[in-house]
């Protein structure tokens, strides 16, 4: 029962069956990370290229460790040290990599849709590690995994996503993934940072954070992306923290067994207060661990045992 998709570009394009297969596979592979020797020979002789046109520590490291735990070789290319500086086009860069024998390309790029373009240029599978304001499907999958592992299910849960929905590719992937798996999704944030059309796909848009958090099973707090904040979407960071920051009092409105999630990196004291980020309801570190397991699963499903 292989994955139906050749690439992993967006959860919007993936069906529930494929998502379930990825989560189940990740569940089986997670154990490897806790072994004394964290390595299985499954992807020996395969080469994974990570190509990042935007800064990233956790996503890139997560992919590289996932590949190494599965015995694949990894090559990482960043824009500052490569021929991209000399004006090489994206297409030429990846065609060169493919000619050198890359079996799979992981890309992060500031332009929405760039991974789709890449997938059309390449025969090798492509995994989107974040394209502009579009999607970050592996983050969406690790969030689904974390919720399912802790709650035992996704169906019927109420998940509140709080913050800058407009610029957030994490929010987009989370929303598509959660809706496909039968969860209810609410969002809250400054009105300037809520994209239009959310209600049309079945998301409940709340006027206040309190309304969104009321009796929620899961709260995903998004990072305020200061690098995308030149447009004056809200008056000040202080005001944002006051009206939209998640703190102990607001978290208290959710169910007692609520899961507090954050895709990282956190702006402590802005969108989330330190006491709850380090508190018993937070599963933020688990999200990071699960990210490696989910990426191992994707590498296995895309590279392990298929002759194209």
């Amino acid at each position: 029962m292989p994955l139906k998709s050749h690439d992993v570009l967006a959860l919007e394009e993936m069906d529930a069956e494929d998502i379930r297969l990825i989560l189940d596979t990740a569940d089986s592979l997670k154990e490897i990370m806790f072994r004394a020797i964290k390595k299985v020979p499954t992807l020996r002789g395969k080469t994974v290229v990570t190509l990042f046109y935007e800064p990233s520590t956790r996503t890139r490291t997560s992919f590289e460790l996932a590949a190494k735990y599965m015995s694949a070789d990894t090559v990482s290319i960043s824009t500052t040290t490569s021929s991209i500086q000399k004006g090489e086009t994206l297409r030429d860069t990846v065609r060169t990599l493919e000619a050198m024998g890359a079996d799979l390309v992981v890309m992060r790029h500031p332009v929405s849709g760039s991974c789709h373009y890449l997938a059309r240029c390449l025969d090798a599978p492509v995994i989107n590690a974040g394209d502009g304001m579009h999607e970050h499907p592996t983050q969406g999958l690790l969030d689904l995994f974390t919720i399912r592992e802790r709650k035992g299910r996704l169906e019927g849960l109420t998940v509140a996503i709080v913050g800058d929905i407009l610029h957030s590719r994490v929010a987009r992937s989370d929303i598509w993934g959660l809706l496909k798996m039968g969860a209810r999704v609410r969002v809250a944030g400054p009105p300037t940072l809520l994209p239009p059309g959310l209600e049309d796909v079945g998301v409940r848009v709340c006027r206040t954070v309190e309304e969104a958090l009321q009796d929620a099973d899961v709260v995903q707090v998004l990072r305020i992306q200061r690098e995308r904040q030149r447009g004056g979407y809200f008056p000040s960071v202080r005001e944002y923290a006051k009206f939209f920051g998640v703190n102990a009092a607001r978290l208290g409105l959710a169910k007692p067994d609520v899961l507090l999630m954050h895709p990282g990196p956190m702006n402590r004291g802005v969108e989330i207060t330190s006491d709850i980020a380090d508190g018993p309801r937070a599963v933020i570190r688990e999200q990071v661990t699960n990210g490696v397991a989910v990426r191992m699963a994707l590498l296995y499903l895309l590279l392990g045992g298929r002759e194209e």
Partner: peptide, 17 residues
């Protein structure tokens, strides 16, 4: 994960725990 026929099989086996 330890099979020697992963790259030749057409049907990808599901990994269990």
């Amino acid at each position: 994960l330890y099979r020697d026929d992963l790259s030749t099989r057409l049907d990808q086996p599901v990994v269990h725990r």
